[in-house]
Design a protein around this nucleic acid. Sequence first.
DNA 1: TGAACTATACCGGCTGGACGGTACATTTTC
DNA 2: GAAAATGTACCGTCCAGCCGGTATAGTTCA
Lengths: 186, 186
Amino acid sequence: MAQESTKEKILKMAKEIILDKGVNHFTLEEVAKQAGISKGGLLYHFNSKEALIKGMLQHYMNDVAVEMGISQETTDKMRVERVLLESIRQMGHNPCEYEKNSAGLLAAIVMNRELIEPLKEYHHNMSTWIAACDDSTLAHILFFALAGIRLSTMMGLNDFDNEAQEQLLSRMAQMARDINHQDTEA
Amino acid sequence: MAQESTKEKILKMAKEIILDKGVNHFTLEEVAKQAGISKGGLLYHFNSKEALIKGMLQHYMNDVAVEMGISQETTDKMRVERVLLESIRQMGHNPCEYEKNSAGLLAAIVMNRELIEPLKEYHHNMSTWIAACDDSTLAHILFFALAGIRLSTMMGLNDFDNEAQEQLLSRMAQMARDINHQDTEA
DNA sequence: TGAACTATACCGGCTGGACGGTACATTTTC
DNA sequence: GAAAATGTACCGTCCAGCCGGTATAGTTCA
């Protein structure tokens, strides 16, 4: 853990700068300064700005994968429901961390759109899984609503208070639980 | 109209560059080149890059306001329903134009986050209106789903085909029509 | 009516600063 | 003392904004 701490700190500070000050302040010098090292030191760990962004995206992807239990194998039908529910739970549980992680996405889009290819793949996979569940249209709506909350927040457009957000998320969770239980009602 | 064409063309080209090539290619020189004038000529119409971005945002805000019929006064309750439905209809009707208009948003966030203040105000107003309708939680979910579709598309993360998107939007429209008719069912 | 003047639209070279990246020196760690 | 980690100094490029022009259409006035 200790030998990784500088690298971790660099990533953390990069995210903070992007979210607190804006992407235009995301420069190698600024990140190095905030991380308490020099630019040369930073470039030792990430040998280009692109590498730094890739590092942030990797962080994001890992977190998403772990949190959602992507690695666990279940039936395709239940997978969507579980992933949506887990995503909703995480957003309610730790909104700050969630927001921070999307900083890499913003940086990637600004620097070089090709960097988001892995994320595109993730979205594509979700779409494919979603198509398999009973009420795939509803699942898609929930999926986009989650994306909307996450991206709006990232852009500073979302001024929801916690209470309202919680209410929103619990309703979404309720809807998510319905996407594979249509048959029991109809 | 003719005396405005250069300014209009500049705005149009700026949006196209951002969406086609990425924000990193959005430079005054590139915009000028695409618009068929020189950088000096461009700066005659928009005397700074910030002014150009403000112009794009203004365009966006105007379009949104007109399309949604914000100016028409109805009861608060119906307003949300109407705005959501109109928004959904527009997205299905002219997705390309919808996408193009959000280019300004992306540029603004990169350049100077303060530029999106007017948009924040719009979002805030929406939230206030939404709180007034019968099923405000559902209305919020739809609102965020719309944002999610729009922003995902803008970032190139959305690889939906037209058919799926239409199905999605019609379901959303159906849900939107329900937000003020809960009382007739319960 | 035509000469002097003004406004509008646009051009293109220039500059100064910001920033990514390199090369190498220096310190720390084991 | 060697490898890892960090610092320092510098280079080259990119780009926003500035500025001195040009061209042309419209206006004023004698």
